[in-house]
Design a protein around this nucleic acid. Structure first.
Lengths: 231, 231
DNA sequence: AAGGCTTTAGGACATATGTCCTTTCCGGAA
DNA sequence: TTCCGGAAAGGACATATGTCCTAAAGCCTT
């Protein structure tokens, strides 16, 4: 990820109504960084001095164990925030962060933000809402993972990305590129994911044709997900 | 849980330095509620109009599935907060909350807090820190649960309550009353917990004598927990 | 078109965990 | 003291999930 002075932050400020968070006089302190698909943006243990606002592209937050297992905690799209918890708690980066696509971040230093926080309450309100939302969805996902088998979690995942309902916006956040990634997202092995998919096919819930998956029976899917849905 | 006008909030305000959060003129709006061990304090779906500050006793937050499974999300001791996320996000209660011991809560209405929030930034700062901490530990616990088998989680649990390190304070929060509760906390069945305990005994990591568990080999425990610890 | 890498698909087997049930033990109520 | 219900301990079996491996298909590069 590197600073890119050619890009003007203003269009993004406008597009996402960031004036309510960043007053006019703060904007000069905001810099623009770009990144490329596959970039490792942050690594665990790293000390953070800035907060990042994703305004373009998609990134994933994941945990790597010493044994090499990988678990995707969440995806972020605009207007995702990176570094909020580190800013508040003052600790170092917890998870790995990687670019899933090319993208753009707005960056502001913790130092500047501390001043902003004192003079401009809406900023801290924004942070609070961000973190509250993160907590809420993390908490939901965690319960779902602990209490239900992969089949249910997977059904829940399919439901959430099916363009059926309204809230397609957030749901898109977790669309995965391939089955390996889907496995890491659902929190299981590729092998087992495959097994469950096969069962869903034989139960006539989904159809598989050359790599792509289609939902065949939305009702059965709902039954299976049993009211649970990734928020 | 019921209002108890006999109890004066001031001693609690002082004990926990709540003056920084609640300015003098706000304190008259704070009421005191008491509860008794076993009380169901909140049920999922309930609409909340107040925020609660636990100042005495211990409560547990847990999820109940339609199938009757139970999973303990976390325990709270003073100065735990209930209703913070609901206040920020405006949604209804997510989990069940039950009193593990007798206790006392300070209560303030969302309505009053909204006014306070506008006039008194430290309050919203407090909320932000509370929620950030909750998110952080939820996130850690969630990864631990997803990535490691019960044996590791259990080792991690024992480590965290062993009065070895400094941070005994927070760790006490999750001391459980009996094995059934411990199972719900670690996120497994009683049967399986028992199995894992037995293995730990035969590995000479712990000792069991009439219901109580003693750590025999802290080193082995650390190896097993593998750097993971409930925060 | 050929070779090589990634992704998909699934067999065989091992391990982790759940469900159901029985027995024993212990402390409190009668 | 006796009785009862909950908590502890563990056997037997079923299910969920992981690990390791092989083969085929798809796609990019040369």
């Amino acid at each position: 990820m590197k600073e890119n002075k050619k890009i003007n932050p203003h269009p993004y400020i406008e597009r996402y109504d960031l004036e309510r968070i960043f007053p006019e006089e703060f904007i000069p302190k905001v810099t623009v960084y770009t990144f490329t698909k596959g970039d490792v943006l942050f690594a665990p243990g790293e000390t953070l001095y800035d907060m990042y606002l994703l305004v373009e592209g998609k990134i994933k937050i994941f945990t790597l164990t010493p044994e090499g297992k990988s678990l995707i905690n969440r995806f972020k799209r605009p207007l995702g925030v990176v570094g909020d918890v580190e800013y508040v708690k003052g600790n170092s980066v917890i998870n790995s962060v990687e670019a899933v696509s090319d993208g753009v971040m707005l960056v502001a230093s913790f130092e500047d933000l501390k001043v902003l926080e004192r003079n401009h309450p809406p900023f801290i309100r924004f942070l609070l809402e961000t973190v509250a939302h993160k907590f809420y969805s993390e908490s939901q996902a965690s319960s779902l993972h602990m209490l239900y088998p992969v089949e249910v979690r997977l059904a829940s995942y399919f439901l959430s990305i099916s363009s059926d309902g309204e809230g397609t916006l957030f749901h898109q956040e977790m669309r995965t590129a391939n089955l390996t990634e889907l496995a890491e997202w659902v929190g299981t092995s590729y092998r087992h994911l495959n097994r469950v998919l096969k069962k869903m096919v034989s139960d006539e819930i989904i159809e598989r044709a050359n790599g792509s998956i289609k939902i065949k029976d939305l009702e059965k899917l709902r039954d299976l997900a049993n009211g649970n849905i990734y928020e």
